[in-house]
């Protein structure tokens, strides 16, 4: 086979997590996990010699219990978009992000785990999961570990996963009463290949117009999705009004470190972060009241 073509010679479909980690550790960098295939089979990396399919690991589920909602890594986006668990409360932020991605057919295939493990700085689901304080469960040769989602993203297309590890599930804790969240994405047209110019998710917990707690996550403005910590601190404990929201939006845009690329200039991205954060916060406030 010529170099430069995607020509994996092996395909494995492990039946349990141990088997999957053995395969991952024995093939190392030459192996790649495959789920929906909507990133891998578009990029077709020529260095991949072995495909490890997650289809038989039973990671396609959305479960709710007293502690929150747990989503299996191989759950497809169409299920998240339509799930009643993400149709109310602050959890709608996840279905909003999912329905804003690609086309319906791609969403029938693409998985939540694939989206976040690809670690695009512009990934839509990452931001929604970040404002919901999600954690990720990772399984490897030494057993499982849990990380806050913010610590999962390390760089462009790089996660905290070691070579022998895979993402098993994402856990979303219950938010306190009076919490609202929203997701907004600036884009050209919604197509299979459309990525965010910038995207934003926010979550507010309010009590009598006072902000008790806040989260603001920004996408496509750094090497990984980031929290706007200064803007969050400004809001927390204060009475929410138009002036404060505007100020928080401007601070968030200063926390962004965007670059110029084919989709947009850095300057425009920074300006639009202020606009989107303001709108997302306003929308989150209206959702706190219901």
């Amino acid at each position: 086979m010529k170099e430069g073509f995607f020509r994996p010679r092996e395909y494995h479909r492990p039946n349990n997590l141990q088997e999957a980690t053995w395969l991952l550790s024995s093939f190392g960098k030459r192996a790649k996990l495959i789920a929906g295939g909507t990133d891998l089979l578009v990029n077709k990396p020529p260095e991949v010699e072995c495909l490890i399919d997650v289809a038989s690991l039973d990671l396609n589920y959305i479960r709710k219990d007293g502690n929150g909602i747990t989503i299996g890594a191989a759950t497809t986006l169409d299920l998240i978009e339509r799930s009643p668990m993400f149709s109310a409360g602050p959890y709608v932020v996840l279905s909003e992000a999912a329905s804003n991605m690609a086309t319906p057919t791609v969403r029938n295939m693409a998985t939540i785990g694939g989206n976040i493990c690809n670690a695009s700085p512009a990934a839509d689901l990452s931001l929604a999961l970040m404002v919901l304080d999600s954690t990720v469960k990772i399984y490897g040769l030494d057993g499982s570990r849990v990380l806050p989602i913010g610590a999962f993203f390390e760089d462009v297309n790089k996660t905290a996963l070691a070579e022998d590890e895979l993402l098993v599930e994402i856990h979303i804790p219950m938010s306190p009463a009076g919490t609202g969240a929203s997701f907004l994405k600036l884009r050209h047209h919604q197509t299979a290949i459309d990525l965010a110019v910038v995207n934003v998710a926010t979550r507010l917990t309010c009590s009598d117009d006072f902000c008790e707690d806040a989260r603001i996550a920004l996408g496509a403005v750094a090497k990984r999705p980031i929290y706007a910590e200064k803007a969050k601190r400004l809001l927390t404990g204060k009475r929410l009004d138009g002036k404060l929201i505007q100020e928080a939006a401007e601070i968030a845009s200063k926390e962004a470190k965007p670059i110029d690329d084919v989709r947009s200039s850095a300057r425009y991205r920074r300006r639009m972060i202020a606009v989107l954060v303001k709108r997302a916060l306003e929308l989150s406030i209206t959702r706190c009241e219901t």
């Binding site: 395909y11 295939g37 089979l41 578009v42 495909l51 057919t105 290949i193």
Partner: peptide
């Protein structure tokens, strides 16, 4: 995966056959 011309149904659901491996 951009154009949808290769759409087929698997178990009643629309999927893109160009982004699906035969082994899957």
């Amino acid at each position: 995966g951009e154009c949808g011309a290769c759409t087929v149904n698997i178990d009643g659901k629309a999927i893109l056959s160009c982004l699906t491996l035969a082994v899957q």
